[in-house]
């Protein structure tokens, strides 16, 4: 710079250099983005190209077998579905309730602080540790065995923070005018919450639930520790029966396997034929989780557009 402050030749060169660096960084940013996308694409393509040819009706309706050509994922997806049923039944009410309490009821005090820090930390505890919790407390402590019920419970605990956080964020985004209007009309807390806040928060909570269940369905480690069996040639007892009362909860106490465990089992075998089956199971799993995440993203996007 010259003394007058106007750019001299040197100054201009400086500016040009700065601009070049600016562009370079933008380039690097785009490159990172590109690589991340490419990895995701490679992962999906590799899995689909290897696995998709194996997916047919037989694959979905057969039991696992020692012969790769005959093996299927029937018990795995049935197990996943039943475990999800338990997880949803537990995680949804508890997650929403905890989120409601922390956002709408909790007084600002020590107890609230402890609960908040605690939930944040639970969200960061490695999933395998939840598995050991289930092993020590549910399987051996409560003698519930290595069952669908325990699997559903441990996954519910694991994804609880996701629903809690989503509920809180959804409630926080409701303008305070809605609360004031309800209270001015004479509503008490629970009326305000149940009649006005929960309906308004529904899209956000729903998004959280779907993301949570998508995570639960792909979770493997905590189920390994509670001994989800990898070779199961039978189905759990059906939840609906022919005799009255037509519903049965026997399946809750049944041993089980789930899709990710079945996939893990097939990956661990040395034969390439089983690796292809693993890819096929992976495709099924990936389609389910990506579809659920996509649905969640869509719901949030639509809700945001509706709110303007």
């Amino acid at each position: 710079m010259s003394e007058t402050g106007l750019p001299t030749t040197d100054g201009r060169r400086l500016i040009a250099a700065a601009r070049r660096r600016d562009l370079l960084f933008a380039g690097i940013g785009l490159a990172v983005l590109f690589v991340a996308t490419a990895v995701l694409l490679a992962l999906v393509l590799d899995l689909v190209l290897t696995g998709a040819p194996h997916i047919d009706l037989d694959f979905l309706t057969s039991y696992p077998s020692r012969r790769a050509s005959r093996a299927g994922i029937l018990p795995a997806w049935v197990g996943s579905a039943l475990v999800m049923l338990v997880t949803a039944a537990l995680a949804i009410p508890f997650g929403i309730a905890a989120g409601l309490y922390l956002e709408e009821y909790a007084p600002r005090n020590r107890v609230t602080d402890v609960i908040e820090i605690n939930i944040t930390n639970l969200a960061g505890v490695p999933s395998i540790i939840y598995g050991l919790l289930a092993l020590g407390v549910f399987v051996y402590g409560f003698r519930l065995g290595e069952t669908i019920l325990v699997a559903g419970m441990v996954l519910a605990l694991l994804v609880l923070p996701v629903i809690v956080v989503a509920t809180r964020e959804a409630l926080r985004s409701i303008p305070r005018e809605v609360r004031e209007a309800a209270f001015a009309l004479g509503a008490d807390k629970w009326q305000t919450v149940s009649m006005y806040l929960l309906p308004a928060a529904r899209p956000g909570i729903l998004t959280g639930i779907i993301v949570a269940l998508a995570r639960a369905i792909g979770e493997t480690a905590p189920l390994v520790t509670i001994g989800a069996l990898t070779f199961i040639a039978f189905l759990p007892p059906p939840p609906i029966t022919a005799q009255p009362p037509f519903v049965s909860f026997e399946w809750l106490g049944s041993p089980f396997t789930v899709l990710p465990i079945q996939m893990f089992n097939w990956i661990s075998r040395p034969q390439a034929a089983f690796h292809e089956l693993a890819a096929a199971a992976g495709v099924v799993l990936l389609v389910m989780t990506l579809a659920m995440n996509g649905l969640a993203i869509y719901i949030r996007y639509r809700a945001r557009r509706l709110l303007g």
Binding site: P175, E177, V178, E180, A181, A184, P199, A200
Partner: peptide
């Protein structure tokens, strides 16, 4: 709740419930 049951209020900005 007792006064709120007997007193109505209209706010500065229209704030209908999302219903």
């Amino acid at each position: 709740m007792v006064p709120r049951m007997r007193i109505g209020m209209v706010f500065q900005k229209p704030n209908p419930f999302p219903k």
